[in-house]
């Protein structure tokens, strides 16, 4: 027994009994044992619980409280105005633009990144020389800081910048657009930048999921004469279901609160007109920079409520589909 312990614990040497712990005191004193167990449970979890409650849960509670006031952030809030801030937000066309932009980003990200990531993950899951290098290169955009990505694309897409010059040099000068200044176009440009940045995250998750698919299933299908495509479609893809759903969930939550890339890439003037605003940039612009703290906190609560409802609906909807899918798929199988 001792030898097992030692081999597993190269650093520790002979495992000495820590002070105060009786060796194998199972029968001696049940109550003391239970009490010590609870001390350990409380001692080990308290730091995490305190930090988590204090910096994640408490702020959201305060956000709701502050949102009921007209408040410039100085002294305690006194001017109670009920839900006026919420009404104001939904009457502001800029905020409605921000909502629309968030919707574009949520659905655009799912619709564009999903298929691309699936294709690339299946490709990079094949066995070929140099695969590791290609995987690393595909992850590069995801690893870069949002700020870096934003500045990079801003310089590339700026009027008369690199991208325009490239288009002109290959004779497509007619396609040149004010990519980041055109009020109708800018959100789609930003969607492109976001896709470029975050598709790597989907690829990482899908590759991790793919490596969980047992090789034996693929081999069995191959012996039965299934082609590579048929194997992917009928064996791999169904098994990737849970991974795809986790990615969709995280992508959706991320898209709803997207801030950094939008903030850095888009011009403030364009953002203030709503063309490139999202709920998060709108919240920071109004709450932090314009010092409308009550109003900003109301937007925060709206942002949170939308994310929360979306998350609950997502789980409910997809959980149900999961169960149905599992049953019907099996029944339909020959």
């Amino acid at each position: 027994m001792t030898s097992t312990n030692q081999t597993l614990n190269p650093a520790g040497g002979v495992p000495a009994s820590p002070a105060g712990l009786r060796p194998a005191g199972r029968t001696s004193n049940r109550a003391a044992e239970t009490r010590r167990k609870w001390y350990e449970i409380i001692g080990l979890t308290t730091p995490a619980i305190v930090v988590y409650v204090m910096f994640v849960l408490v702020p959201m509670g305060f956000a709701f409280y502050y949102s009921l006031f007209r408040w410039r952030g100085v002294g305690p809030p006194t001017e109670y105005i009920g839900f006026d801030n919420y009404v104001m937000a939904f009457q502001d066309p800029i905020f409605l633009d921000a909502l629309r932009n968030n919707a574009i980003i949520v659905f655009g990200s799912l619709a564009i990144q999903g298929p691309i990531a699936l294709g690339v993950a299946l490709l990079l899951n094949r066995n070929f020389r140099g695969r590791t290098v290609f995987r690393l290169l595909a992850f590069v955009p995801y690893v870069l800081a949002e700020v870096t990505v934003g500045i990079m694309w801003k310089l590339i897409l700026t009027d008369g910048g690199t991208f325009d010059a490239l288009l002109r040099s290959i004779g497509l000068g007619g396609l040149v657009q004010p990519w980041l200044a055109d009020l109708d176009l800018v959100i789609w440009t930003l969607l492109f930048v976001l896709t470029w940045k975050y598709v790597g995250f989907a690829i990482i998750l899908l590759l991790a999921g793919l490596s969980n698919v047992p090789q034996e299933l693929n081999e069995a299908a191959a012996i039965d004469g299934a082609s590579w495509w048929q194997i992917q479609r009928h064996v791999t893809l169904p098994l990737l279901g849970p991974t795809i759903r986790i990615w969709m969930f995280l992508s959706m939550i991320g898209s709803l609160q997207v801030f950094d890339v939008i903030w850095v890439t888009s011009v403030p003037a364009v953002r203030s007109l709503g063309a490139s605003a999202t709920m998060a940039t709108y919240m920071v612009d109004n709450g932090f920079f314009a010092r409308l703290w009550g109003y900003g906190n109301a937007v925060a609560v709206i942002l949170f409520a939308i994310s929360f409802v979306a998350a609950l609906l997502f789980q409910r909807f997809l959980l149900r589909r999961d169960i149905e899918g599992a049953i019907t798929r099996r029944a339909n199988r020959p």
Binding site: F62, Q257, V258, M283, W293, A300, F308
Partner: peptide
């Protein structure tokens, strides 16, 4: 122990709290 799954759910609930949404009250705190 009693309440273990409750505690776990309590922590996983945090996945639903977007850090971005809490940023203003966090700053004030």
């Amino acid at each position: 122990f009693r309440g273990r799954e409750v505690l776990y759910t309590f922590f996983t609930l945090g996945l639903l709290f977007p850090a971005g949404a809490a940023i203003l009250p966090l700053y004030l705190m």
